[in-house]
Amino acid sequence: MSPSRGRRLGAFVFLSPGLTYLIVLLLVPLAMVLSYTVFQRGRFGGVVYEFTTENFSRLFDPLYLSVVVESLKLAGLATLIALLVGYPTAYLITRLPGRWKTVALVMIVLPFWTNFIIRVYAWIILLNGEGLINSGLEAIGLGPYELLYNQGAIVTGLVYSYLPLMVLPLYATIEKLDPQLREASANLGASGFTTFRKVTLPLTLPGVMTGSLFVFVPSLGNFVIPEMLGGGKSAMVGNLIRKEFLSARDWPFGSTLALALIAALLVLLVVQAWVARRA
């Protein structure tokens, strides 16, 4: 066996489990979703294989457009807040001494060890009218405030859930930044803020993009948080897709909505790749 053939065989052996997984569980279902978009709804779910473009024209129905706009707004706001909170956090962690860095990073990832639904439910206990925060406020003569079942609660839940996904890539890029660059900037007379604006921020922009994407993407598709923390009073694209598949039994239109979501996210990915390459 020639060495190059051996290497190729090795690559094949190592890649095949992952590749099989991706092809069977991602590409095949994805292809099915795409194909369903041009067919009609079956009475009990499923599809009737008769061609139609109606699913696409329904996308532009003001009803669904308004949901899309609403989702973009909520996911965008959550991403922005996560960035504003996450950047200083990541920056501080890079400044910690070695051992504490590990501790801090473990703390960031820790919530992921608990079930997502339970963590969201914990927010209900905190925020509800008779909840911890409101009874605390009442004890000092304030409130009660309406903290739950509104859009603020949705954004809070999204930020909380996905903040670690913002901090980690930011940490990775800030950590990689050569401290000598900042020193050079300071030596040349730049103030701390100018150094941040002209050196640190531009060089960590890929991390900002990646982190933002990690928060934005799952936020946009989330349906649990709007239901539990939003009290079902506002819908996001994820809720719409879920409803089309599970209760409306309209798979073709659900697929079309999913396709639109994927297309929007692909555009964002391209932008992110472009920024990463330029940096």
Binding site: L25, L26, G42
Partner: peptide
């Protein structure tokens, strides 16, 4: 993360892939 939403939907579809004509 990215394909999570798609995969969930996809799985539901895959379960039914074997034939939809009876509907």
């Amino acid at each position: 993360r990215l394909p999570a939403a798609v995969a969930v939907a996809g799985l539901a579809l895959a379960a039914a892939a074997c034939g939809g004509e009876s509907t």
